[in-house]
Amino acid sequence: MELIINGKVQQLEAKTIKDVVEHFGLSSKPIVVEADGVVLVSEQWVDTAVKPGMKIELVHFVGGG
């Protein structure tokens, strides 16, 4: 399925947001997901289906002031 992840077009097999997170090996990391503008807490990942063309943002905390 074609998804837009962090601004880049990606082809990957995924049914839910949880699959996307696992695809990138981020399951155990403190990350946050936004799908088509909706912020998802980790408990929602398994129930959120992905659709072709969905815009997904995978973000995390970095150093900052």
């Binding site: 962090n6 990391k29 403190p30 990350i31 995390h60 905390f61 970095v62 150093g63 900052g64």
Partner: peptide, 19 residues
Amino acid sequence: LTFAIRRINLEQTEDDSIL
């Protein structure tokens, strides 16, 4: 402690998170 929020670099997810 203050932090910023940024996109994860998907080409280098091994890159260790600040946390």
